[in-house]
């Protein structure tokens, strides 16, 4: 999955796949908090419609 989105042009660090059992509440909270922190650090997604459409129009013009 990471390699696929990387090929598509999305930073693979934006994807995280983790197995968490329904019995592992604290681990779930930890995994999510860590990922949210990481995403905040990376910044807003390039897939936001406005940003994406600008990229598309530049690509079409070139």
């Amino acid at each position: 999955m990471k390699k696929l989105i990387e090929f598509y042009g999305i930073d693979p660090e934006r994807l995280s796949l983790k197995w968490v059992s329904s019995a592992e509440g604290p681990r779930f909270a930890k995994v999510i908090t860590e990922f949210v922190d990481k995403i905040r650090e990376i910044g807003p997604s390039p897939l936001r419609p406005k940003v994406l459409m600008e990229a598309v129009s530049v690509e079409k013009a070139s």
Partner: peptide, 22 residues
Amino acid sequence: SVQQVLAKDLDSRLAFWSAEFD
């Protein structure tokens, strides 16, 4: 064709595919 896309950086890939899928 795969190598041609891999030669681009992430932003160019995203722009390329988005324009195609548009």
